[in-house]
């Protein structure tokens, strides 16, 4: 029982950066904009969060700085693809390249700094309770932030007027424009939100999960987050399922290794990727699932002619 609880906690901890980044990207894509620069925004968020934490001593100011930095990078992307209608795929990839360079550059003086970071909760009397203690009261605070964000986005997208507008803009910017919504402003908002989420995901890595800064420390998690949005067929709760699947299978293969399972480690390391593909294939068999959810205008530029 104890081991099972521990596994859940570890899986959530591993899934959180994927969840945060993918949720932000989901909102961006729901508004019809494809931003492939998640990796770059995560790294920039990670380094800025770390620097802010070193400078101010406050990890939460660090998280805020990470969010602002992620949004800042997203703003560059926004100007390119929204105002200047540049190609979204290429701009996103360029943003990743830029973010990798920018973060490495900004962090040069901070590679040797050490921060205390954000520790998992430890509430006297509660965290030590059997089973529910570690599950409900023993996670890293940012894990709760990610879960709250998940619920909030699910609710916002599907239960509020604002969500309806975002989805309408993603489905048919022309119609939304005709009704009188400012498509570009709404898309800017969603792009910035996506960047902020990626920034917080980076902050989770540099302040909570592995409190440090070193170049490229996200090691490709931004790309996995992008894939998870597709995996989730643009539905928030499925992002959680995907992140847990990916993080969980990675952990499971480590568990198998530590238990002495005699399989080549590279074969085991393939498992998270294989599992994601297989599950995606299975859920995609129902054609209506994907067709209903993929934002129809995804990746297409829009310029109001008014």
């Amino acid at each position: 029982m104890d081991t099972a609880v521990q596994l859940v906690v570890l899986t959530l901890a591993a899934a959180t950066p994927l969840l945060l980044a993918a949720l932000g990207e989901l909102v961006t894509e729901r508004s019809g904009v494809l931003n492939l620069g998640v990796e770059g925004m995560m790294l920039t968020g990670a380094v800025c969060a770390f620097i802010a934490c070193v400078k101010t001593g406050s990890p939460w100011l660090g998280v805020a700085a990470g969010a602002v930095a992620g949004a800042g990078l997203a703003a560059i992307f926004g100007v390119l693809v929204l105002t200047l209608t540049a190609n979204q795929v290429a701009s996103g990839l360029a943003l990743s390249l830029f973010g990798v360079g920018l973060s490495a550059f900004a962090g040069l003086d901070y590679v040797s700094a050490v921060v205390d970071g954000i520790r998992p909760l430890a509430i006297p009397g509660l965290t030590t309770l059997p089973v529910v203690g570690p599950l409900l009261f023993g996670q890293n605070p940012l894990v709760y932030v990610a879960l709250v964000l998940l619920v909030a986005i699910q609710w916002m997208l599907h239960r509020t007027h604002a969500g309806l507008v975002v989805r309408a803009v993603g489905e048919s910017p022309e119609s939304a424009d005709a009704i009188g919504y400012n498509v570009l402003a709404i898309r800017y908002g969603c792009v910035l939100f996506g960047g902020a989420c990626a920034g917080v995901a980076g902050a989770y890595l540099s302040l909570a999960y592995t409190p440090m800064w070193s170049e490229n420390m996200t090691a490709g998690r931004g790309w996995i987050a992008l894939a998870l949005v597709v995996f989730a067929t643009w539905k928030p709760w499925r992002v959680l399922a995907g992140a847990v699947l990916f993080g969980g299978v990675t952990l499971a293969q480590f568990q198998a290794q530590a238990a002495g399972v005699d399989v080549e480690p590279q074969l085991l390391a393939m498992l998270p990727y294989v599992a994601t593909i297989v599950v995606l294939a299975i859920i995609s068999r129902n054609p209506m699932l994907i067709l209903r959810n993929a934002p129809a205008s995804l990746g297409r530029p829009f310029r109001p002619d008014r």
């Binding site: 770059g40 360029a94 830029f98 360079g101 920018l102 490495a104 550059f105 040069l108």
Partner: peptide, 14 residues
């Protein structure tokens, strides 16, 4: 540092 090169490359692409 190689970081500056990355920065410059990204800027050019933008």
């Amino acid at each position: 540092p190689s970081a500056v090169s990355g920065l410059f490359q990204g800027t050019l692409l933008f």
